[in-house]
Amino acid sequence: MTALRRRFFAWLGRRPGSAGTALIAPGGVYLGFFFLVPLLLMLGYSLMPRGTYGGAELGFTTEHYVRFMDGLYLEILGRTLGYSLLATVFCLLLGFPVAWVIANATKWRNFLVFLVVLPFWTSFLVRTFAMIFMMRDSGLINSLLIGLGLIEEPISMLYTPFAVVVGLVYGFLPFMVLPIYTSLEKLDPALLEAAEVLGARPLARFVRVVLPLAAPGMAAGCLLVFIPSLGSFLTSDLLGGAKQMMIGNLVQNQFMAARNWPFGSAASFIMMAVVLLAVVVWLRVRDDAPGAAR
């Protein structure tokens, strides 16, 4: 065994760069097989005519992409982008102060991080159902507000855009908090002191030192919230109902209910193109930001 190991490492050592290749290989093969191949299959499907009983027939067509350019589907795409953007903005606004407090808590830091991660211990489905109990007409929020005499009639929250965005924010907030926390934790307190001695008041210190240095974490957090939001279908399904359909629901419908795999595939690819575009634009913005200088 040791001889084998020694020979393996000797082999690694002989070839410059081969260590990297060897380390990447297992994951690369896995991803290639289970990610790239299905992706190519779906690309193929999206360009083939629809089969009569599901699946696809041999042939080439762009009809599914053309069909997507219809008002209804573009509206779904626009809604998806809008909800995801809103969820990202609210996650950022809510998540930054949380990350700040955790990064500055010396004693309770690890416990607070644990609390942020805690919801992951429960199924997302169960937690989304719990949101229904909170937001429905006879739910906790309405009962409470009526009980306090603040409102007469229950406010309809469920099956509104509001409910979907609340659900998305709830679901993805930890993905915003953790990367921002990581970048704030690395921030040397001496930098803030240096800024203070140089005449910077609290707001100036925040804008000129904290924000630029937290920018990479904020950028990562925004991507980690925005992208899964785009693809989410559970939240909009349970909290939004039929009227708040997002593109994830459309894809799911096409594959499951409508059995129109080619159109579902096309919708997925259009979504993916939008995500890629968003990421590219985002990376551009981030790299041009002052915080990106290294």
Binding site: D188, A190, L191, E193, A194, A195, V209, P212, L213, P290, G291, A292, A293, R294
Partner: peptide, 9 residues
């Protein structure tokens, strides 16, 4: 400062 505390960005 001992660590210089230069703004890295």
């Amino acid at each position: 400062f001992q660590s210089y505390a230069l703004f890295p960005h």
